[in-house]
Design a protein around this nucleic acid. Structure first.
Length: 811
RNA sequence: GCCCGGGUGGCGAAACCGGCAGACGCACCGGACUUAAAAUCCGUUUCCCCGCAAGGGGAGUGCGGGUUCAAGUCCCGCCCCGGGCACCA
């Protein structure tokens, strides 16, 4: 066949056209005899355009999906849209377009780009989270949680900007000020907010991390463990004269004889009983804390004048309020042991409070509290602590907690860092929370048969004030479902992390209008075999998803405890050495790349430039290199299809290389996913084919071209399909069986052995592969150059490693 | 401060179990083809030294030590870059 020029536009258009006509092309089988494989990439926010970071994420997943198909699996590979969220509201304010319209038009645009990149998604299962057929199930789940006490309302502090007159998300607070008004400090306001009781699953979430070990990246699991933050210690009541007991949490009850004051969080209930003056001081502390960015924060506090009694020592100590004590952790009150805690030390030295050491280092003396300059937090031997003196810290912690429990002023206790999930957002573009506030019945869940609570379409979004829904009387004013009294509908909407917590279940049964999904379908497809996405979701999305799964299990919907068996976190994409960002204007647009080089080139380069877990640098020049490679493949294949062939003198060599590369690529898929080296191996193969071109027989050539086609199929689907057709074959190449490699054929017959003398490379000797140590040594010693090197010297030792190297140690 | 990654040519990287450091690609330079250019093809390129040359010698994977016949890889002590967490009692 005469050589053809690689025209990516023509090839990709042609197959795009043909593939578009077959909606069943990528559908998973319903009642399949094949083993199932669920591969998933994180769903995107529909911003309007795909960039090269998306392409990288999807290229990894798609290569895997296509490979698994060819390996005989029934593959589920779906895609959807995380379609609620603030940008749609901002766009509505900026250009007067309704959020839904703006969002759906973005979805359409991005779907077109997806399609031209030929990602093998089953679009029949598409999920768009802003549509009522999806979010009604958010509401349904919310009601189930309300029934089980897993959803509840409480006063909570939110970030409030006086200029915007609205609540800000944490990400919108920059250095303590509003992102849009950088001289307006954000205030903390208490509002009634809805929460999901994630803390009910704290122990479960921590325990089940064990099931994920080995299949999730360690750092993600570590981040989750830290986030859950299990801490073992004791709670102890100190008695405040005139008030009664106040409880503190400590992990170091063994140091309690060294407690020289108690410190309360400024929000602590006792603060409300203080003088107006002191209350105002505490309030300033709370606001100041909101304005503190990360970084070193000075400790600040004041004496309340109150006194507490240490139940262990009977001593009376002062009670302070301190800005570093958090109301949200433990009991919001601590016993300060400055001698043995860095933070307490800093605070007490600043205010001249006593420092009393009570732990003797194992190999030293008790320090002097008056002169010590750093706290010592190590375990040691308890001293000056009554009957506990002389015990080790470990023993004392246990014994003292037991003592407190017997005496009724404390107990051992476990505290968690994990907090309940605040899901209320004073926003329009999110799932309406399905409850009604009745003056008689209180909070009433919307009955299931009245779901979904639809988001009204005609809403004025101004970016000011409370939730825009509060200004829609038809939405707000409803009768109570229980008693019929005029009532008010809840106007907060749900955090968009709710949407992404269970979307991958919906893919299994995306069109079900009677239930979120059919449990039988979940039983078949779950857990997700491979989830692929950015590490930025290591905590929030992936903890919420795990929580949601456990909740669904406990309401009897599913049986799996974890949603995701294996997690892969790909690295970031850097564009020409700089982090891609809108503000830098260096976001690489996927459509433009596809225009210039084609989808195949973009996909292949996204995998070639670096191993997938590492950051990769996108460069035009690099993409051009891949484009050249694909062109070489195409020209080589077209001019060699159906040729008479050469004398076959290179057949054995070529056959070996074919199997070596096939083995390498197969193993890369099955283990490390270092597709950069898989692709490099394909390039080597092509280079060798090229060099031997005239000496390959017709049969070996045909086989070579076929294998090259298979190798390309998971990575560059358009070119692979085109070559498949050029070879006179029909049907989709990615539905063919992946060819098995033959390790015997891949084995080299001769190997070049480097010979070292005293560790220095001195010669290379070619020997037949597989020679044993003695034969290898003999063969090497027979070499002239080697013989000359050891001439006249004493051979002390010879290290011969089969097929690798020989090192001769001489004197 | 703590916890993870990472540091290898001009650049992206490879070397998977301790065994030839730099595969593959980019860029550069040189050559072929061309009236010319593009495209394509072939070749050179870690550094230093000796040699007209074929060739030969030495150094080299952030820094300093160590283990070993042999270290990019293992151990000890540092430095730098990126990310995450950050008063969690």
């Amino acid at each position: 066949m005469p050589e053809k020029t690689y025209d990516h536009q023509q090839i990709e258009l042609k197959w795009h056209e043909r593939w578009s006509q077959d909606p069943t092309l990528y559908q998973a089988e319903e009642n399949s005899a094949r083993p199932k494989y669920y591969v998933l990439e994180m769903l995107p926010y529909p911003s309007g355009a795909l960039h090269i970071g998306h392409i990288r994420n999807y290229s990894i997943g798609d290569a895997l999906a296509r490979y698994m198909w060819m390996r005989g699996y029934n593959v589920l590979h779906p895609m959807g849209w995380d379609a609620f969220g603030l940008p749609a509201e901002n766009a509505a304010i900026a250009n007067q377009r309704p959020p839904r319209e703006w969002t759906l038009s973005n979805v359409e645009k991005m779907k077109r780009t997806h399609s031209r990149f030929a990602f093998s998604y089953d679009w029949d299962r598409e999920v768009t989270t802003c549509e009522p057929d999806y979010y009604r199930w958010n509401q349904w789940f919310f009601l189930r949680m309300l029934e089980k006490g897993l959803a509840y309302q409480k006063q909570a502090l939110v970030n409030w900007c006086n200029q915007c007159a609205t609540v800000l998300a944490n990400e919108q607070v920059v250095d303590g000020c509003c992102w849009r008004h950088d001289s307006t400090p954000v205030e903390q306001r208490a509002l009634e907010q809805w929460f999901l009781r994630t803390t009910a699953y704290a122990a479960d979430l921590l325990e089940d991390i064990k099931q994920l070990e080995g299949n999730w990246p360690d750092r993600v699991l570590t981040m989750q463990k830290n986030w859950i933050g299990r801490s073992e210690g004791a709670e102890v009541d100190f008695t405040i004269q005139g008030y009664g007991p106040v409880r503190v949490f400590t992990t170091r009850v063994d140091t309690i004889f060294g407690a020289t004051c108690m410190i309360l969080a400024p929000e602590h209930a006792i603060v409300a009983t203080l003088s107006e003056d002191l209350k105002a001081q505490a309030k300033r502390m709370v606001d100041a804390r909101a304005n503190q960015g990360p970084g070193d924060v000075l400790k600040d506090g004041f004496d309340t004048g109150l006194r507490a009694v240490n139940p262990f020592s009977g001593e009376t100590i002062p009670i302070w309020v301190g800005n570093f004590v958090l109301m949200g952790y433990g009991t919001g009150a601590i016993m300060a042991v400055p001698a043995h805690d860095e933070r307490d030390f800093e605070f007490c030295r600043k205010y001249g409070i006593d420092v009393v050491p009570v732990i003797k280092p194992v190999d030293g003396d008790l320090p002097d509290g008056a002169t010590m300059t750093v706290a010592n937090g190590d375990y040691g031997i308890v001293a000056n602590s009554g009957q506990w003196s002389g015990m080790t810290s470990e023993d004392a912690r246990r014994e003292m907690a037991a003592h407190a429990e017997r005496e009724g002023f404390g107990k051992s206790a476990i505290t968690w860092r994990l907090k309940d999930w605040g899901v209320s957002r004073q926003r329009y573009w999110g799932t309406p929370i399905p409850v009604i506030h009745c003056p008689k019945c209180g909070v009433v869940g919307v009955p299931d048969d009245q779901l979904p609570v639809l988001l009204p379409r005609q809403v004025q979004i101004t970016g000011k004030g409370r939730s825009p829904l509060a200004d829609v009387p038809e939405f707000v004013d409803v009768p109570c479902p229980k008693c019929g009294e005029p009532s008010k509908r809840e106007t907060d909407t749900m955090d968009t992390f709710v949407d992404s917590s269970w979307y991958f279940y919906r893919y299994c049964d995306a069109k079900n209008s009677n239930a979120p999904f059919d449990p039988a379908k979940i039983a078949y497809w779950f857990p997700i075999d491979q989830y692929i996405g950015g590490v930025e979701h290591a905590i929030l999305h992936l903890i919420y998803s795990r929580f949601w799964t456990k909740m669904m299990r406990d309401i009897g919907l599913i049986t799996n405890a974890e949603p995701v068996k294996k997690l892969f976190t790909q690295g970031m994409v850097i564009a020409n050495g700089a982090k891609m960002s809108k503000s830098k204007g260096n976001v690489v647009n996927a459509d433009l790349v596809a225009d210039e080089f084609g989808a195949d080139t973009a996909r292949l380069f996204a995998l070639f430039a670096a191993p997938p877990e590492r950051d990769m640098d996108w460069t035009e020049a690099g993409a051009e290199g891949i484009y050249r490679f694909l062109g070489r493949v195409y020209r080589f294949a077209t001019r060699n299809i159906g040729t008479a062939g050469g004398d076959g003198s290179s057949d054995a060599k070529i056959l070996r290389k074919l199997h070596q590369v096939l083995m390498k690529v197969t193993q890369d898929f099955d283990s490390r996913w270092h597709f950069n080296t898989s692709i490099a191996a394909m390039m080597e193969l092509l280079n060798e084919l090229h060099a031997e071109e005239s000496k390959i027989s017709a049969a070996a050539m045909a086989q070579s071209i076929e294998i090259v086609t298979f190798l390309l199929a998971p990575f560059a689907p358009y070119l692979a399909q085109e070559l498949w057709e050029e070879q006179g074959k029909s049907g989709p190449v990615f539905r063919q069986q992946w060819p098995a490699f033959d390790a015997e054929l891949a084995r080299e017959t001769d190997v070049e052995i480097p010979v070292q003398i005293n560790g220095k490379l001195r010669a290379r000797v070619t020997v037949p592969a597989g020679l044993d140590k003695d034969a290898l040594e003999a063969a090497v010693r027979a070499d002239e150059k080697v013989a000359a090197q050891i001439e006249g010297k004493t051979v002390v030792k010879v290290i011969a490693v089969v097929d690798k190297l020989v090192n001769i140690v001489v004197k």
